[in-house]
Design a binder for these strands. Sequence first.
DNA 1: ATGGTTTTTACTGCGTC
DNA 2: GACGCGGTAAAAACCAT
Length: 323
Amino acid sequence: MSDTNVRRFQRARDEEEQEEDEQSETLVCPECGGSVATDTEHGETVCEDCGLVIEEGEIDRGPEWRAFDAAEKDEKSRVGAPTTNMMHDKGLSTNIGWQDKDAYGNQLSNRQRQKMQRLRTWNERFRTRDSKERNLKQALGEIDRMASALGLPDNVRETSSVIYRRALDENLLPGRSIEGVATASLYAAARQAGTPRSLDEITQVSRVEKDEIARTYRYVVRELGLEVAPADPESYVPRFASDLDLSDEAERRARQLLKSAKEQGIHSGKSPVGLAAAAVYAASLLTNEKVTQSDVSEVANISEVTIRNRYHELLEAEDGITT
DNA sequence: ATGGTTTTTACTGCGTC
DNA sequence: GACGCGGTAAAAACCAT
C-alpha cells in the first residue's frame, strides 16, 4: 500500500466515523460498537461498554442537589407556588386554613381548635404588620374590585398591582388617598395593556372623583416615568362593536377607517373614544347595519355631534387614501 | 391664570315613515 | 308628529404654557 493510498483510506475512515457519530446519538458507540446511554444527571452521553464519552457539557435540567428520601427532597427543593403581585405579600406568607380539620380531614379537638384560632389571629396580625402592608392590602382589594366591575383581565390587575407597589415604594402616597392612587394605577395599567377604559368608566366604579383620579394619574405617571402611549382608538372598536351587535365585517371596516385616518394624521389631538365611535358608526353605514348615532353615542359615552364631525373626517380620509 | 383647541349642550331645519 | 340626521353657536372642558 502506498502512502497516498493509506491517507485516502484514513480519510475514508474518518468520514465513516463522522457519519456514525451523527447516528450514535440514538444507537452505537464508534469505538466498540456498544450501546450508548444518556446520563442526564451529568449531562453526558456515554458508551455503556467502553465508557467513551461521546457528548458532554449538555445542559443539565435536573436539580444540582441530591436527595436520599422524600423528606430531604422537600427540604432542598426550592420551587413552589408561583408568586403573584396581586396579593399584598406576593402570596408568600403563611395562611392558616379556616376549616377546623387536620391534614387528613379529621375534626380537631376542642383544645386544638382554640389553639388554631389564636394562631390565626396572630398570623393575621403579623401578615399585615406595618402600615405599608395594610395599605397595600386595602389598595389591592380595591384594584381587584374595580377590575372585576370593568371586566378587565388578570394581567391588567397584575400590572396595576405593580404600579401601585412602585408608587408606594417611592413614597408617592402621603397626601393622596389610597383609593385615588389605586384607581390611577388601574387606569394606567388598563391603557398599557391595550384594553383601555375611559376616565368616565373608571370613575363609575371608583370611590373617588374624576378630577382626583385624573390628577393622581398624571402625578403617578410623571413620578414613575411610566410610558403610556395615547390610547389607540382601535382598541375601543371591538367593545363598541359587540355592544351594538355589529358583524365582524363592520368591525373590520371600522379598523380600516381608523388606519387610513392615522396615515393622514387626522387623529392627533382628537379624543380616541370619539374617533372609535365615529369609525364604528361609519362602518355600520357602509355595511348597511342599522345603528343610529344616538345608539353609538350611548355605548361610547360620546356626544352625537362629535360622532358626526369625526365620521365625516374619517370618510374623507378614506377617500383621500384610495384616490 | 390664560389662551387655544376640542367636546358638549341646546336649538333648528329637513326629509322620511 | 316622531324620528334620524345635519348643521350652528355658545358654553364647558381640557391641555400646555
